[in-house]
Every structure is written in C-alpha cells, then in structure tokens.
Design a protein around this nucleic acid. Structure first.
Lengths: 192, 192
DNA sequence: CGAAAATTTGACATGACTCAACTGGAGTGG
DNA sequence: CCACTCCAGTTGAGTCATGTCAAATTTTCG
C-alpha cells in the first residue's frame, strides 16, 4: 500500500487522514502468473496499481495477432484505458506475467474518490499526462525508427523486466513478428 | 470564446462568474496561414485552443523527415505536450495550415487557473484522458493496419479537414512517404 | 508568366512478413 | 525416470509492403 502513497506523494501532498481515506477506496488482490485479469468484450473495467509482479496489456486483431500496449511493474498503473474511461466494453486483455499483488479501483469508485479527496484528481491528471507523453513518443518511435532501433530503446526503457519476458511478447510490443525478432536479434549480436 | 465554454460545459458545469474567470486566463491571437507557432528547442510552451482555422503539430527526425502527430480544427486543443507538461525544451513544431483564431494559455497560467477554478482541472483531466485513448488507438492502428487501411480510417476520422491538407501532410500523419501515398491512392481509385 | 513546390511515375532496393521445417526445453503422465 | 507432447525459438526460401532515388509533370502562387 505504501508504494501507492509514495507514488501519490510525488505529485500531491496528502494528510494522514486523506491517505487513509484514499486507500479505503481500493481493494487488494493477489494473482498467480498466467491469470487473466481482463478479456475483450467485458463490461466491468478496473484499474490496477501494481505492488509487486508484472502485468501485460494487449490487443488481438482478428483473433490472431497480439499487440502489446504496455507492461506494468511495481509502482505502475495498468488498465484498459478505453473501457475504463468510457465505460464501454473492453477491447483488450490484461494478463499476469509474474505473480502479482495489486490494488484495484473501479471507475465508479475512482469518481467517488475524486469527490471525497479532490487532490487525488490532480494526481490522476498528472499521471495520465505522463502516459500521454510516453505514448506519443512511442508512436513517433514507430513512425521513424527501424525495429532494431526500437528494440534498443525498449531495452533502455524496461531494463528490469525484459529478462522475464518471452521473446514473442517483446516482439508484439515492438510491432514485429516473433520470427523477425529472432533474426534481428541474431544480427545485432553478429555486429557487436 | 464561446466555443471554449461550450467545450468545457460538455464535461463540467461552471457558473457565469467562473466562466468569466476562466476566460480571463487566456489570451487571444490571430495568425495567418503558414505562421510557425512553435519550433523545436524553444523554452516557452503554450497550449492553444482553436476557435477557427487549422493547426498542425509535427516532429522532424534528423532534420529531414516530418512526422505529423496531430491536426487541430475548431474546438480542439493543440500543444507540444512534452514541453508543455514537463517545462523542458520543445521537440516539435506547430504551424498554421489555415488562418487561425486561437485562445492561448501557458503552463504557469494553467496551473494558476486550477487554483482559481478547481473544476477546470477535471475538464483538463477528461480531455487528456480522451487524447490518451485516441493516441493508443492510433498506435494500435499503426501496429496492425496497412497504410491503405489507415488512410481509410483517417478519412473517416477527419472528414472535414482532409480537403485542405497537402498530400505529403497526410502521408506524414499516416507514417508513409509522399511517393508511396501517391501510388496507394491511385491503387485505391483503380479498385473501386 | 515563371519559379518553386507538390505530385506522379518507374526502376530498383530493403525491411519485415509468411509459411514450413526443424530444434530444444519444460512440463506431464505413465 | 523416461517418453511424449507442446510451446518457444530458430532458420531458410520466397513474397509483399513500403522506401529510395531520379526524372517527368502538374499545381501553386508571387
């Protein structure tokens, strides 16, 4: 729980009472690796704050190809933003890659929390602003860099978690096929 | 000015006094087509709300290739989000594509506005949430669709402004070269 | 009108995909 | 503890989407 409060305190200052109130809006769960926290076409959407473990958020096109939108390690948020924010049916999947301990809040609860502890709305504004910036940067990377360059950038950005990921998961994040990822990696080694 | 108030009223309800206060935080300017509102490596960053006209936000990689992040028509916001939110040097360009009438707010003024009229922070949270969703969708489109499919999607999304854009600008939004865009368009016509 | 920019076109190059075959671990059940 | 299966990863051949470069053509606009 401390991890969430610590994260919040980076952006807004809460009194001890407010901190307690905030935490009361969350529930806490533990999930083993491979648990599916969300599937496409579900109605109820939640937002997860990772205390420990790793989560992955991905989309399927035509029920075939996976496209990973994000990985979340401790201290990061994870949600199907589309369904969480619009209250419509989910379009993506969230799965546990490493045994996870998470705090959970639903969209309704979050709205209630905003009324109860207004400062928290600033916290969410700020982290969403940061998500947006990161997302724009990733879009630009996809428009201007080659797969290999994106891979190198990925390694820098996610130094801690890349070791526990399957290659096909990294490939689906970079936007290439597992086969091509394999060849590219081989090439990278050869040239260094 | 009404356009901004109308846009705000979609998400939060302001009293007439609050409305007036809000507007007092903005300045208003008119710029002719081709004006550059922002260049890379500038310090002061502003956010623009378009009353009329069209703006474009784009990046240059290696001073050569343009990558368009967004177009803004009346009722939309436009900013170099990275520098606006982090207060660091800008990394992108904003130019006027069609004579524009805009409302302007700096990052400092926006923060001051949040203190003065707290409800406005909710408004910004919500529009940024929407930007994020749109941006994620665009990233997915780039990962899973062919250039032609992205073009068709672009036409649906921006039906009004596509007519006043140069082809190379659309190409730079889709993430392809002007040459390939030309060939693709020809192909599209042939098959219909 | 004339220059500069945008678009088109063609030949060729290349990054990335597809498909299929093969390899090698990591379970799983007997 | 072995045999078996099942994925993930590797490799190669062939293909496709898209890029590059250069030249020709059209459009824009001072």
């Amino acid at each position: 729980m401390d991890l969430l409060l610590k994260n919040i305190s980076l952006h807004v200052t809460l009194t001890p009472e407010e901190q307690e109130k905030v935490l009361s809006f969350f529930s806490r769960e533990q999930y083993p690796s491979k648990t599916r926290l969300l599937c496409a076409n579900q109605q109820i959407s939640k937002s997860y704050f990772v205390l420990s473990g790793i989560l992955r958020n991905y989309y399927l096109d035509d029920q075939i190809n996976e496209h990973t939108l994000s990985f979340s390690s401790p201290g990061w948020w994870m949600a199907d933003m589309y369904s969480f924010l619009t209250q419509k049916q989910s379009t993506s999947y969230i799965e546990v890659l490493e045994d996870a301990d998470v705090l959970i809040i639903t969209a309704e609860r979050r709205d209630a929390l905003f009324e109860e502890v207004p400062k928290i709305e600033r916290y969410f504004r700020i982290i969403i602003e940061r998500s947006l910036i990161a997302n724009q940067q990733r879009l630009l990377d996809n428009l201007s860099l080659t797969a290999q360059e994106r891979y190198e950038r990925f390694n820098k950005r996610y130094p801690t978690i890349k070791n526990c990921l399957a290659q096909k998961q990294i490939a689906s994040y970079l936007g290439i096929t597992p086969e091509f990822f394999s060849k590219m990696k081989k090439n990278l080694l050869k040239n260094k």
